[in-house]
Design a protein around this nucleic acid. Structure first.
Lengths: 111, 111
DNA sequence: CATATATTTCAATATTCGTTGAAATATGGA
DNA sequence: TCCATATTTCAACGAATATTGAAATATATG
């Protein structure tokens, strides 16, 4: 796993905002357009940032109709948190317990 | 607290290595020269990276004789871990328990 | 003081980053 | 098919990043 690219993906204001928004949105994710509107980012700029997050493994994308839906990858975030706790933190033993989960398990979209 | 600059500080191979080394070294820290030797970095390049870590609050520096000793700031790392767990992770509740501590509490230097 | 050691500063350079605007592509509906 | 919506691709550009080499600064020792 590449901790540096995951860190780099989150180390930018707009991308951090994008990721936080996707985390809030939970496993159903959000359309690119919804993120663009929410954060007031132009669609091409957003694509650039999505690419970084995607290459780092922090989000995935799938098309649904004309929209593309981006979804936070909680596993990857857990992996990063685990790495940081273990390697940059003196190895506090709480890693496995602090499992990263979607904020609210709302199963609203299309339901 | 500026999560982005802390993330950016760690989002580079050499700096991540530097920080991990300082975490291993514990509260006594390491001289700039020791880090340079351990990671095979030229001293001026290292100063550049130390600056980034320092501005992010992840390390502090103090002179001791002709050497400058750099020390990891565990509190700041805890802060970052807390932020990430809370904001990028759905708010898993383990944050306060996963307190970031020096790897080994050896109180050797000057003792 | 003169010299050696330890670190920082500075200028230069190639590379990468983040944004913009225009054009292209993909999908769905009239 | 034609058109509107949604997203991506591309070229361009200024800004920031990481590294190098040379010079400067700070401290200790003879």
């Amino acid at each position: 796993m590449d901790a540096v690219s995951a860190l780099a993906a989150l180390a930018q204001d707009n991308r951090l905002d994008v990721f936080r928004l996707l985390v809030q949105a939970g496993p159903e994710g959000l359309t690119a357009g919804a993120v663009a509107t929410a954060l007031d980012l132009s669609p091409n700029t957003l694509t650039f940032h999505f690419d970084r997050l995607r290459m780092a493994g922090l989000v995935t994308a799938h098309r649904e109709g004309r929209s593309v839906i981006y979804t936070a990858q909680f596993d990857k975030m857990n992996e990063l948190l685990g790495f940081l706790t273990e390697n940059c933190c003196g190895g506090a033993p709480c890693v496995s317990a602090a499992t990263c989960k979607p904020s609210r398990s709302r199963t609203k979209r299309l339901a």
